[in-house]
Design a protein around this nucleic acid. Sequence first.
DNA 1: CCTGAAATATCTAAAAG
DNA 2: CTTTTAGATATTTCAGG
Lengths: 158, 158
Amino acid sequence: MPHELDAYDRILLSALQENARITQGELGERANLSTAAVNRRLRLLAQAGVIERYTAYVNPKAVGYPLTIIVEVKVESERTDLLDEIQHSFRNCPQVQQCYYVAGECDFVLIFLVRDMAQYVELSRRLFLDNKNVKSFKTLVSMNQVKTGGSVPIDEPG
Amino acid sequence: MPHELDAYDRILLSALQENARITQGELGERANLSTAAVNRRLRLLAQAGVIERYTAYVNPKAVGYPLTIIVEVKVESERTDLLDEIQHSFRNCPQVQQCYYVAGECDFVLIFLVRDMAQYVELSRRLFLDNKNVKSFKTLVSMNQVKTGGSVPIDEPG
DNA sequence: CCTGAAATATCTAAAAG
DNA sequence: CTTTTAGATATTTCAGG
C-alpha cells in the first residue's frame, strides 16, 4: 500500500498541487520525463490513492460564504454509537467544511463556512444544543484567513 | 467584485469542486449549455477569482505526513508589526496547512501536517517557544479525519 | 447571451529500443 | 525508462443568431 515515491513523482505532485491544469507535456519538461512517462505515472498515482482527486478551489467569499467559524466540542460520553451518531451529523452538514476528532482538551474541532452569524447560530442549535451528548462547545470567529488550502509538503522521506 | 452567479454557474462550480477533471462537454450536458458556453463561463469564473485555482488533492498519509495537529495560540501583544511578523512565520512554514486569525479565547488557530511528533515538537519550538510574543499555545492531536477538504456550499443566494 | 462547427491542443495507448 | 506514431478527446476560437 505505501507506493514508494521517487523524485519524479515528487516533482509531479508538487506541481499538480499548485496547478492541476498544467499539461502533461509541461509536467514532463519540469521533471525531465516524456509525456508518455508522465501519463503513466499520473495514472498510477491516482490508482494508488496518492492523488485522491482533482478539485477546483472556489473562493467562499465569492459565493456568499464569507465567514469562517472554528468550534471546539466536548462530548459527555465517548460511547461508540454516540460518537458515530454525532460524527454523522457533522459530516452531513454542508456548512461543516472540516471536522477532526482530537485528543486533548476537547473532542472535536470543526471548521464551518457560513453565510452569516445567523446561519451559524441556527446550525449550532441543531448540531450542539439539541444533542444531549454535547457537553459544551466553544466558538472562534475567524477574521482573517492567514493561510488556507495549504499544500501537503512534498519532500524527501525520512 | 461580486460577479453575480446564475444557476448555470452554480451547476458548474458544484461539479468542478467534486471533480475538476470533468470535461467541458460533460459540464455542458449537466448544465444544458454548449461546450463553448461552458468554456467562456469557466474563463470568466477564473478571471473573477470565483475559481481560485485547480488543484490535485494529495493524500497526506501517502506522502509521509500522517499526523494532523491543531494548535491554538495566544499572543502577548496585538501590535500590528508583531502580528505581521508572526503571521509571516506561520505562512512560511510548509507544515502549516491552514492558519486563521480569530476572535475569541485565543488569537490564532493553526492546522499542521507533520511526519511525526518529533517534527511537531521541533516546529513548535521554533514557531512558538522561540517567539517572545507567544503567550501560550494549546496542542490538539487529531486521531481521525472525520471530514476533510469539504466543498464550499453552492446554493441559492440569500 | 447563446449555438454549432472548425481549428488547436492534449491525452492515451501501442510498438519498438 | 525513452521516442515515435496515430487516433481519440478535449479545449478554444470564430462566425453568426
